[in-house]
Design a protein around this nucleic acid. Structure first.
Lengths: 113, 113
DNA sequence: TCCGACAAGTAGCGTTCCTACCTATGAACG
DNA sequence: CGTTCATAGGTAGGAACGCTACTTGTCGGA
C-alpha cells in the first residue's frame, strides 16, 4: 500500500503530522513512516511539492533553520491550516464512513492484524 | 464529497454493489446513491467507463437485456470479481486504518449524527 | 408531435501522486 | 585532501483516475 490510494488525503496527512509540532520535510516523511508502522513510506518527490502547495494555500508557513550548519526548511501549521485540518478530518470521516458502508461490511474475516 | 476522493476505490465500490446481484449501469448509480444517503452521486461518465474497465479485467460480465424494448446492459460479478472484491476490502481496511490513525484521532466531536 | 426522463456511451481535461533525476552539506574513511 | 555515504531539499515529466460536457436513442405524457 505505497500511498497509491492517498489521493486527496495527502494534504490532510501532512497537516495532521504537523499538528503535533513544526517539522522539516525529511522529518515529516519519517514521522509518517513511524506512525504508520512503515506502511506510509512517501518519496520526497511526493512530500516536498505537497508542502509547497500547502504553503501556497496558506496552511503552513516555512522558515529556514540552520541546524549544525545544515539548512533545513521547517514547516509549521498556520491558523488556517488548523482549520483546514479540521475540515479534512470531517471530510475523511464522511468519506470513510460512506465507503466503509460498502466495503467494511461482508466478511470481517480478519479480526486481528 | 462528490467522489473526488474515491481514487482507487471506485472499482471496489462497484464490485460491492454488484455483490448483491446483477444490475445495469444506471441502476448501479442509483444503488450507490441510495445506499450512501445521496452522498455518492456518480455521473454516468464515471461509472460506465469504470464498468467496462472491470469487464476488461474479467471482474464482471455484461449482457444486453431488453426490457420494454429498452436495451439495458446488465453487469454481473464473476468469480474473479468476487476474489478481487475480497482483496479490495482488505486493501480498504488497511488504508482506512492507516489514514484513520492520523485523521480519526483528535477531536471526536461528532458523537451523534 | 415535441419534450423530458431514462439509459448508454465517448472525448477531453484537470488533479493528484509517483518515478527518476539533480543539488548540496556534513561526517567518516582512506 | 578527496571520495563516498546519509541527510535534506528540489524539479521535470508522466501515468492514473475520475469529472464535465456532449451525443445517441427509446419511451411516455402533454
Amino acid at each position: 500500500m505505497n500511498a497509491q490510494a492517498l489521493h486527496g488525503h495527502l494534504d490532510a496527512l501532512l497537516l495532521a503530522v504537523l499538528e503535533r509540532g513544526a517539522l522539516h520535510g525529511y522529518a515529516i516523511i519519517e514521522a509518517l513512516r513511524a506512525r504508520s508502522d512503515g506502511l506510509l513510506d512517501l518519496p520526497t518527490g511526493t512530500v516536498y511539492p505537497a508542502l509547497r502547495r500547502l504553503e501556497r494555500a496558506g496552511h503552513v508557513v516555512s522558515a529556514w533553520s540552520t541546524v549544525n550548519g545544515r539548512e533545513r526548511r521547517t514547516y509549521e501549521l498556520t491558523d488556517a491550516g488548523r482549520r483546514a485540518l479540521a475540515d479534512q478530518r470531517t471530510g475523511w470521516r464522511e468519506f470513510s464512513a460512506t465507503v466503509g458502508r460498502f466495503l467494511d461490511s461482508g466478511h470481517p474475516s480478519t479480526a486481528s492484524s
